[in-house]
Simulated scan of single mutants.
Amino acid sequence: MATPESNARQVLGALLEDQLNEERKIKESLIQRGNAVVSSSGVLVALALGAASVSGRDPKGHLPATVTVLTIAALALFVAAAVTALTVSTPRRQSALSTQWLREVWDNSGPDPFSASHNARLDLLDSLRGTNRSAARLLLCSLALEVAAVSLLSLAVAAMLVQAGF
């Protein structure tokens, strides 16, 4: 018959495993979102350059200074957003269980190997959460840069339309 202590350990072990799995899912989600920012920034840069190219065919043959400055600033922000988003998926230092540690625990497992295993998983969870927090901050920064770039690009397009007499 299972003791209340062994039941508690099973429950705690399952909860900890669930938390580790959830953090791993969050990590994958952050990487996917970072890649989406990179892709969308690339598309928007292409659209910005296309708009500048079309407006450059203006009979006057030049873009107003305001449009040029806004477009260049928007392109710089798109590049910054993409670079920042790329860092979301860069490998980060994270705790890992060494095989040496596992051997030592296995060889010297006294009456309570659960505690050693539980503490190791807690360390892994702390490390993974720290990595995810860092990646989330980078992702938020890249999204803010992209929003700023879209805003500047929108102003540039509006300025082009005003210049063209629309």
Results as ranks from 00 to 15, higher is better:
108 N>K: 14
48 A>F: 01
9 R>Y: 09
135 A>Y: 00
139 L>F: 08
116 A>P: 02
84 T>W: 03
122 L>N: 07
166 F>S: 06
56 G>S: 07
144 A>W: 01
113 P>N: 10
89 S>V: 02
110 G>K: 10
34 G>P: 08
92 R>E: 11
164 A>D: 13
162 V>P: 00
17 E>H: 10
97 L>E: 13
146 E>S: 13
42 G>H: 10
23 E>C: 04
90 T>D: 04
93 R>H: 10
154 S>E: 00
95 S>Y: 15
62 H>G: 06
103 R>K: 11
130 G>S: 15
146 E>Q: 15
87 T>I: 06
67 V>F: 07
153 L>S: 05
23 E>D: 12
28 E>K: 14
151 S>V: 09
31 I>F: 05
97 L>D: 10
45 V>A: 13
9 R>L: 05
47 L>E: 07
120 A>H: 07
29 S>C: 05
71 T>F: 05
64 P>Q: 13
94 Q>F: 01
130 G>R: 11
38 V>L: 04
67 V>P: 03
56 G>T: 09
101 W>F: 12
142 S>H: 04
147 V>D: 00
152 L>V: 04
145 L>F: 14
68 T>L: 15
2 A>D: 09
133 R>N: 15
144 A>I: 05
100 Q>I: 12
130 G>K: 09
131 T>G: 14
155 L>S: 08
92 R>P: 01
23 E>N: 10
143 L>Y: 03
141 C>V: 05
87 T>Y: 05
99 T>G: 02
44 L>A: 03
98 S>I: 06
118 H>V: 00
92 R>H: 09
85 A>H: 02
14 A>Q: 15
94 Q>M: 11
75 L>F: 07
122 L>R: 12
116 A>W: 05
107 D>I: 02
146 E>I: 02
56 G>L: 08
144 A>G: 10
106 W>G: 08
160 M>I: 08
149 A>F: 06
163 Q>I: 00
133 R>V: 09
97 L>A: 14
69 V>T: 14
106 W>Q: 13
34 G>K: 03
128 L>M: 11
37 V>N: 02
155 L>R: 05
57 R>V: 00
123 D>M: 05
7 N>P: 00
47 L>D: 04
142 S>N: 03
